[in-house]
Amino acid sequence: MRAGDGARRRLTSPIFLGVLPFAAGAVVWTILVRAYHISPVFLPPLESVPAALRSMFIEQRVATDILISSLRVAAGFAVAVLLATPLGVLMGYSFRISQIFEPVVGFIRYMPVPVFIPLCLLWFGSGDLEKVIVIFLGAFFQLTLMVQDAAGGVRQDFYEAAVMLGAPRRALIFRILWPAALPQIFDSYRVCIGWAWTYLIVAEIVGATAGIGYYIIKAQRYLLVSQIFAAMAIIGLLGMTTDLLFGAGHNLLFPWAKKKRSFLT
């Protein structure tokens, strides 16, 4: 082994590569603040963000808001998954069923989530229920079509092969369609939960009394800009963690359909 090999390996290690854009962002940020003397009201110095983060956790109990937001996302997303999965599977399996539901799902799917918020506030108030319903409405219709796509994309010759091996028609959904489509369905969940976070933050910014989105709008009101950035960092970290968990879950649940390596695995 040559002397340069170790250093080269360190320079191409996944963690180093992944951190690189963050570091570049930090450098640009610092240059902007230092060289152009931008007012902290618009862009606070980078080092004020960790400080804000600390005071948020210690003095303002932001952990509770994180928990509340996470539970809202989890609840809304879970309901969407529980309803969209069977409907999407049936739509993918049966052309008739897809003919019934596809127009209405496609119709609602194109409505941006914020248009649901005024009605939901009117009908369900500004509490947890309204947030869960907004997330559900945002996720359900998209997810249904994604699951339908996954279920409908199962190779037809798998069904023929199964039938020739003696499987009765009624066994095809559970023995062929479901296991064949599940990795892609799982990927749809992964994409969809990211959207669910977006919908939640929008709902919390428009009208809420707790949660990270509420926290951001509160910080903006008092011009605590470094807290806004800190809250954004929290959202980013939560999203990245969720995504990593889904990625690891994919490889764990579907060893036969392993993905390209993600940066932890």
Partner: peptide, 19 residues
Amino acid sequence: APGKTCSMVFQSYTSFPWL
């Protein structure tokens, strides 16, 4: 009725990747 009297090997690989 398919699968009752004959078995079949297809040209496309039809073994199930999840098994």
